[in-house]
């Protein structure tokens, strides 16, 4: 099975022997101030302006990435932004994409090397072969397979306020470990299994707007061996824009328990 998460040692040795490309998805200013050596910058924000396969393929190609390139992606937002970029490449048929096990802050607080040199890249041709098995659309949610488990990865109060009918809430904060973007797979499996999610379950994840938090959940499920997982990448924002039905936890003023 291919690697979903790359640990620090794997990435450092891949950098040394030039067997992988590191992709930093933070904002250009953050990237310029310091990044993991050899990392290229592919800001999530740029990708989200137009995430059509043609545009993303052009972007990736300009960074010297083709569909066979071994890519490791990181961010500084608990892995959610990196996940969304990773999922986009995977959706274009790129099978050698993984997430760095921790964030840029965690990487640097471990005293690992950082750099602000911007590497040269010779352009490559990126030919997408769409892999819609990992994509869910609102149509899939309107007439779901009765066995499909729908996961909402927003915070609890937002979920209680309104969610897609039938969804189960797994807030993205449940997914991280103390020193990495994801828990140990065994622990993760235990938590999912407590919720009745099994390795053969059909799962769709979604979150508030662009599929970042639910992108992270997508990879969390994959590390736990739940391979039949899809991302509803347009998420709750599209669902609401389309005026689809929503469900609410009624008769309780839960917001007033928050000290925010």
């Amino acid at each position: 099975m291919r690697r979903i998460v790359s640990d620090v040692d794997e990435v450092r040795s891949g950098i040394r022997d030039r067997s992988l490309k590191v992709v930093d998805v933070r904002m250009p200013a953050e990237y310029k101030a310091g990044h993991i050596p050899t990392a290229m910058n592919l800001p999530l924000r740029t990708l989200l302006k137009d995430d059509s396969p043609e545009t993303v393929a052009r972007l990736a190609g300009s960074l010297g990435i083709d569909r066979a390139t071994e890519v490791v992606i990181y961010d500084d937002t608990f892995g959610a932004l990196a996940s969304r970029v990773a999922w986009t490449l995977e959706h274009m048929g790129h099978h050698t994409v993984s997430l760095l096990e921790n964030t840029y802050s965690q990487w640097s607080s471990l005293g690992l090397e950082t750099d602000n040199a911007i590497p040269d890249a010779s352009a490559a041709a990126y030919n997408p072969v769409m892999n819609d098995d990992i994509l869910a659309t609102h149509g899939d949610l309107e007439s779901p397979n009765p066995d499909t488990i729908l996961l909402d990865n927003r915070e609890r109060l937002n979920y209680l306020e309104h969610h897609i009918p039938g969804a189960m809430n797994i807030p993205y904060r449940m997914l991280a470990s103390r020193d990495g973007i994801l828990r140990d797979p065994q622990e993760m499996r235990r938590i999912f299994e407590n919720r009745g999610i099994r390795s053969d379950s059909h799962i769709i994840t979604y979150c508030g707007s662009v599929g970042t938090l639910s992108g992270l959940a997508y990879y969390a499920l994959r590390t736990a061996g739940m391979d039949r997982t899809r991302l509803y990448v347009r998420s709750f924002k599209e669902w609401r824009d389309l005026d689809k039905p929503v469900e609410k936890q009624p008769d309780a003023n839960y917001w007033d328990l928050s000290a925010e």
Partner: peptide, 18 residues
């Protein structure tokens, strides 16, 4: 697992809701 806030009770317990 809860709502990003905790609640302190009148009987010296800390509660996690929802």
């Amino acid at each position: 697992f809860s709502i990003n806030s905790a609640h302190i009770s009148t009987r010296e317990s800390i509660q996690l809701h929802w």
